[in-house]
Simulated assay, not measured.
Amino acid sequence: MSLIVPFDNSPLAKAALVRARQFDQILEEGVIVVSVIPAQNAEYARERGWIGEDEPFDGEQIVATLREAVEAVAPDAEFEYITVDRFAPHGVIGNKIRKFARNNGATIVFLGSQNAGRIVRSTSVGASVVTDRSYDTMVVSGAQLPEIPKLEEKLPVKELLETD
């Protein structure tokens, strides 16, 4: 069994990763982070801050950047990535995450991507992920996590969410 975190390096994704780490302190299932990267889609990568305005798409560099961001927050988490077609719609991305979660024995998916606030919309990646009944879904709706004392006792999060 595992705790899965879809990760795009947004503040909400980082908050979801922190929350998953806290839960893992109690559940001891392991955290697996997955990033979905549309191949050669520089616009998508720029929108997420994976590459600079004038930088070309470099898949290896994007993976390295995402991996480093995960390690900074959750050094013990396993990091994986999935590449999809350049213009894959949100439904494809969401379905890839859902399949990944099922294939990796997810008990909880911690969803905190930029679309988490619009999770009820049919165009949201989150809408595809939350429909699977083989795991629970925790939606992290704010980059500043509300304090849950028992979780804070196991793993305080303040320094993990500080930004540069």
Rank of each mutant, 00 (worst) to 15 (best):
N41W: 00
N41I: 00
A42M: 01
A42E: 07
E43T: 15
Y44H: 12
Y44D: 05
A45K: 02
A45H: 06
R46W: 08
E47N: 14
E47L: 13
E47S: 14
E47V: 08
E47K: 15
R48M: 02
W50Q: 07
W50Y: 14
W50R: 01
W50F: 09
W50M: 03
I51E: 04
I51K: 01
I51F: 10
G52L: 04
G52I: 00
E53T: 00
E53H: 04
E53Y: 06
D54P: 00
E55D: 13
E55Q: 13
F57S: 05
F57V: 04
F57E: 01
D58K: 00
D58T: 03
G59T: 10
G59R: 06
G59S: 12
G59N: 09
E60R: 06
E60W: 04
Q61P: 00
Q61H: 10
Q61V: 10
I62K: 03
I62Y: 05
I62L: 06
V63Q: 04
V63E: 08
V63P: 01
V63Y: 01
A64E: 14
A64G: 11
A64H: 08
A64I: 09
T65C: 01
T65L: 11
T65S: 12
T65N: 12
L66E: 03
L66H: 04
L66W: 03
L66S: 02
L66I: 11
L66C: 08
R67T: 15
R67W: 02
R67K: 15
R67N: 11
R67C: 04
R67D: 08
R67G: 02
E68M: 07
E68A: 12
A69N: 11
A69V: 05
A69T: 06
V70P: 07
V70L: 11
V70E: 00
E71G: 08
E71V: 13
A72Y: 00
A72T: 03
V73P: 07
V73H: 08
A74K: 07
P75N: 09
D76S: 15
D76K: 15
D76Q: 15
D76Y: 12
A77D: 04
A77F: 02
A77P: 06
E78V: 12
F79V: 06
F79Y: 15
E80C: 14
E80D: 14
Y81W: 13
Y81T: 12
Y81C: 05
I82L: 15
I82Y: 06
I82T: 05
T83L: 13
T83N: 14
V84F: 15
D85Y: 08
D85S: 12
D85L: 08
D85P: 02
R86H: 05
F87L: 09
F87D: 13
F87M: 14
F87N: 14
P89D: 13
H90R: 06
H90V: 06
G91D: 13
V92E: 11
V92Q: 10
V92I: 15
V92N: 05
G94D: 04
G94A: 10
K96A: 14
I97C: 02
I97K: 02
I97L: 12
R98A: 14
R98P: 11
K99A: 14
K99V: 07
F100K: 01
F100R: 01
